[in-house]
Amino acid sequence: MIESLDPGTLYPFGGAALFALGLHGLIRRRHLILRILAVNIMGSGVFMVFLGIAARGDAPPDPVAQALTLTGIVVAVSATAFALALTVHLARLTGHAVLLPGPLRTHRGNRPEDP
């Protein structure tokens, strides 16, 4: 039993749990910083699945899955950096950094056109 629970088997389960936990945070929290953190935690869950798969069995770890994870981490930090910049931009415009649920103010009648 313990033999079958090598890290390569155990960690993907943890990755699945992290993904779901992040999703829960993304659904439930409204503040953008927390939502961005939630997306990052989901991403870490995916990376854990990849790295767990890479470490399965007795063979040396799979460098392809590890390289994909490295790429994924850099893509994630890029997306996060932009999301944070957008959050600050939104806060400058509205005074808060929260996305409230429900339809936005798209039905507002008049709006000066784009610059």
């Binding site: 415009l93 996305l99 103010r105 798209t106 709006r111």
Partner: peptide, 8 residues
């Protein structure tokens, strides 16, 4: 466009 609706 930089307005509130667009950024939201």
């Amino acid at each position: 466009t930089g307005d509130t609706d667009a950024v939201t």
